[in-house]
């Protein structure tokens, strides 16, 4: 009996020790998206001279990020958030818990993957990023808009004539893009802040492609606009840094 009690005691003492060894430490991560235009932080409705010399304003910027993850040094992904909706009118920080340690980058989908894109917006509570209340769903095509960027162009550069407008609403599975940003990250106990910049200049002016804001200024989801939507997505993919 005495031996049996000693055995139980030993087992009890050792049990929590094993548990502790199996547990991984997690840390809090805050991811902040910062839209920029060149080196300046973008302010909505403010006039800028863009990389092509046009005087432009950005009035609206909203897009989905899906499966936002940190890239482990072995290449695997540690997911922070399955879906996040960034709205620059009401920007919020994406907060999550992740195993602490060393990471080599940030990975996310720009837009929604096909499974997410087939969701029913009416099936989510209003606060959910996929709900009807976010006004990001095209009932016409039963698909979500991935990216909305709208603004105006001062065509004659006088600073008074802002009657030219651009309006891009991209969507559909074909324009979904995966983005990977290489970055050495050491995630430690406590708060870890990660900033992802989005350079508006690079959405319109890329290395191999340029969007003409005066003539290629509408994407609202039609099939005839799909090619432009795909070009915008390719450019946007490289605009995150």
């Amino acid at each position: 009996m005495k031996k049996f009690l000693i055995l139980i005691l030993v087992f009890t003492i050792l049990s929590p020790g094993c548990k502790e060894d199996e547990m991984e430490d997690t840390a809090s991560v805050n991811v902040q998206i910062v839209p920029k235009i060149g080196n300046e932080t973008l302010v909505l409705d403010q006039a800028y001279t863009d990389a092509g010399g046009l005087r432009i304003k950005v009035n609206f910027l909203k897009f989905y990020l899906s499966h936002l993850s940190l890239v482990s040094t072995d290449g695997s992904l540690a997911e922070l958030k399955d879906i996040a909706l960034f709205d620059y009118e009401n920007p919020s920080v994406i907060s999550a818990e992740v195993t602490d340690g060393e990471y080599s980058g940030i990975h996310f989908g720009l837009g929604l993957n096909p499974e997410q894109n087939n969701s029913d917006p009416d099936s989510f509570p209003a606060s959910h990023p996929l709900s009807y209340a976010q006004a990001m769903h095209w009932d016409t095509w039963i698909k979500y808009k991935f990216l909305i960027i709208e603004g105006r162009v001062d065509e004659d550069t006088t600073g008074t004539d802002w009657t030219k407008a651009y309006s891009y609403h991209t969507g559909f599975d074909d324009v979904f893009r995966e983005v990977e940003i290489a970055r050495n990250l050491i995630i430690e106990n406590g708060q870890n802040n990660i900033v992802i910049n989005l350079d508006i200049n690079k959405i319109f002016y890329g290395v191999n492609d340029t969007i003409d804001l005066l003539t290629e200024n509408n994407v609202h989801g039609s099939s005839t606009e799909l090619a432009l939507a795909m070009r915008l997505s390719d450019l946007c993919k490289n605009a995150f840094e």
Partner: peptide
């Protein structure tokens, strides 16, 4: 919304149920 003149595109502002 065919990306051409004549598209009413009402659903952009008046979409959903």
């Amino acid at each position: 919304q065919k990306g051409q003149a004549g598209d009413p595109e009402c659903f952009h502002c008046h979409g959903g149920r």
